[in-house]
Design a binder for these strands. Structure first.
Lengths: 218, 218
DNA sequence: TACAAACTATGATATAAATCATACTTTTGA
DNA sequence: TCAAAAGTATGATTTATATCATAGTTTGTA
């Protein structure tokens, strides 16, 4: 149960309330490529990732998709404010086998009522998330594909860390990267080649690593 | 004072606390093109627009800027979560003469402590704002310039409404629109012409109006 | 009210990246 | 374990849009 201590819910709940959560939560497993929820599904509760990695995306008419963000263990999924919409505007799809626990919306909202500190932390979380998204939008608008790809790898390194071999600890297809930076898989394939020639990155199949030198963030 | 009732702060405060706010708030006026705060300034408090219109932007090395969003009367500016950063990541520049009131950060944070309902509303606000920004990002990634311009006008119509003559109630230069949709003013100028030929919009100098027919949102 | 500064329209050219096409490689599941 | 499906590399062509250039228009202000 150690990993549970690590999420925003457990960290911000008064101890007296934890039994309520532990009683209501349901655990679920999803296989790689399965979706936890889909665009258009009714919202019934929130999910917390125990182990695994997830991409949050929106579909775009033709076969295209846009990956909005990635989620790692400890992250919360599926809460988008209350009232108005009871429908997910996004799809959450597992990048590897993933375990989550689920909390009914009633229980979650009661939890917010009882734990102002949680509400406060969530507000802070969303404010920061908004700032991140705005930063990404600026990059989308003003960087060309190669720069966006470097920024994406930097973010992925921060989010998922490195594995034993020194590569970023997540395996993504060229198409996933393309969907994240708003381009095509062909362009990602070409940029990967160029970035390797320029000694800025190294790859091994679906694994990537940033080489130490001049990694300029924005 | 009627317009004050309309902002998130006054709407969510317990009456007993209002005297504290009224005693601490400071009123300021800014002329068109003046900045309320700038990227890099130290954060000392939050601003609420009483009257006027504001653009929130980030500068991008060379002369380029990206407008992240627009703010209208009633909107709050400058709160981006707490702790960590004490520095604005964005600039807020007035599009017309604007009156704001300012609240010291200490007072604002005390207000959050005393009014859980305000914290809750703010969380909801940021969650929704995040959703909007993600939607805009999807448009940025997958629509071409003309489509992004139509979406921008739709958003502006929703945010600012129409004036007496039936035009969207905000005056923007081609450069402002370009900065908002991530393109150049030349492209906006050309798209404006095309959209008029296609009978999708009508313009009058810096005023725009969407024509009623087939306006498809996403 | 006039003049400089800011803004706009429009054409010509250059370019990043999408699209189309094909062959090759890796992964998955029956 | 092997075949089908998914993913990748790379070239050729097309396209949207940035950039460069110039002249005309509007706006703010001295």
């Amino acid at each position: 149960m150690k990993e549970l201590q690590n999420n925003i819910l457990y960290k911000n709940c008064i101890p007296q309330w934890l039994p309520v959560i532990n009683q209501s939560r349901q655990d679920h497993s999803f296989r790689k490529a399965a979706s936890i929820f889909k665009e258009g599904d009714a919202v019934r509760g929130v999910f917390f990732i125990r182990t695994g990695k997830v991409k949050i995306l929106q579909n775009w008419g033709n076969g295209k998709e846009l990956i909005l963000r990635f989620a790692n263990s400890g992250d919360m999924l599926g809460y988008r404010g209350l009232g108005k919409k009871k429908i997910y505007p996004v799809t959450a799809t597992c990048l590897e086998n993933t375990e989550v626990f689920y909390l009914n919306m009633d229980v979650f909202e009661a939890t917010l009522q009882v734990n102002p500190r949680l509400t406060y932390s969530l507000m802070d979380f969303y404010a920061n998330e908004l700032e991140e998204t705005e930063k990404r939008m600026r990059q989308m608008a003003h960087l060309e594909a190669k720069g966006r790809m470097m920024e994406a790898l930097l973010l992925l390194e921060n989010k998922f860390g490195l594995n034993g071999r020194g590569y970023i600890n997540i395996r993504l297809t060229k198409q996933d990267i393309a969907s994240y930076i708003g381009t095509t898989y062909e362009t990602v394939s070409r940029m990967t080649g160029e970035l390797q020639n320029e000694r800025l990155i190294e790859t091994n199949g679906k694994e990537f690593r940033l080489l130490p030198q001049k990694r300029k963030s924005s």
